[in-house]
Design a protein around this nucleic acid. Structure first.
Lengths: 188, 188
DNA sequence: TCTAGCATGTAACTCGTTACATGATTAA
DNA sequence: TTAATCATGTAACGAGTTACATGCTAGA
């Protein structure tokens, strides 16, 4: 089932969501959607630039050229009123379940095949990654949690606080899980 | 960086992991990797059949033709010793962080744009989905948790118990998070 | 009779990743 | 001088989704 032209892709909605919080260049967008700090969505510049063009063509974004240091003109994008409407519709719309694809758990599912040292090592690796992510989320959340803007339901900081809290809770659970697995591996 | 021919794709490893627990036809594989029951990985038959051919060509799988009711010969696939080695290597190998792409959290991140009713509705939807998944995991886990096979580190059921426990812990955290968000939405 | 399940496969398309390409300024 | 940062874009490829295609058997 192909998307109707007025409904942007998931990536498009991610971009609209970022730009609804304030205008940015494609370069800034790409930096924010990189590996570690991506707000629950990642993308690279080679996806972002064509998508910006599509969104602008659909009337959901507009840009102004600002001074910059690149070989091509530097463009700052902002959401149009139509773009905001589209984003609101998307946020309020149905939320169908996403396909599950979790490489880490997939590996653990075959852990019965490897020797105990390799198994423990695998779980320790996972624990480290979850713990580091948890620490990063907790740091960011600490700066937000008592800020007045983060208490106002209509402020983007409020939503950031909600999502960061979710990251903290699920990562804590993941770390607990890894600790539990290490104990199970010693027991069995 | 293209993969070396001896290292299968993630999908290939998912298939090897399933077949290491016992031979299956492509059709059975496809059923097990469907939406709700997929063991942390989903795929459709149109991905699976070509991948089976690739894995067999690489010597990691072999098949025998069995009697069946389809218009083409029914093939039952099994992992070869080389396939088992490859799978073991993959399980014990480095675990690099995966790109984060979480549509649900992405929506919540723009929740500041919509009215309180739509916001509550969105969180309730998410809660329902997490709760249902949690219930399914708990049911499956309950059947496994006291079984002797699930206590033996070298038995596939042991690994199933670990991954199901992970599912339970993270889904519980997600439900807690949703409840916390509903309270925050009423407070703000 | 008609639908659902069995059982395989291909084709067209979208999405995401990696690599190629350009060129200025600034700090080591 | 050399690398990193700014700043945009295209091209080739791989992975995932949807649709097309075939044809038998068992049950409603």
């Amino acid at each position: 089932m192909p998307r109707s032209p007025s409904t942007p892709s998931d990536l498009g909605c991610a971009i609209l969501g970022l730009l609804a919080r304030g205008p940015l260049t494609g370069y800034d967008l790409a930096r924010r959607m990189q590996k570690p700090v991506g707000y629950f969505w990642t993308a690279t510049h080679s996806q972002i630039y064509p998508e910006l063009a599509r969104l602008e063509h659909a009337g959901l974004l507009e840009h102004e050229v600002i001074e910059g240091r690149g070989p091509r003109p530097t463009k700052r994008y902002a959401v149009t009123p139509a773009g905001l409407d589209t984003l609101r519709e998307w946020v309020a719309g149905e939320l169908e379940p996403q396909p599950v694809r979790d490489l880490e758990t997939l590996r653990l599912w075959s852990i019965w095949l490897v020797d105990p040292d390799a198994a423990r090592d695998l779980v320790r690796q996972a624990r480290t990654r979850h713990y580091d992510t948890l620490a990063a989320y907790e740091t960011e959340l600490a700066e937000l949690v008592d800020h007045p803007r983060a208490q106002d339901r209509t402020d983007p900081w409020f939503a950031s606080r909600l999502t960061l809290q979710g990251g903290v809770l699920t990562r804590r659970a993941a770390v607990q899980w890894c600790d539990w697995m290490l104990a199970e591996l010693d027991r069995a």
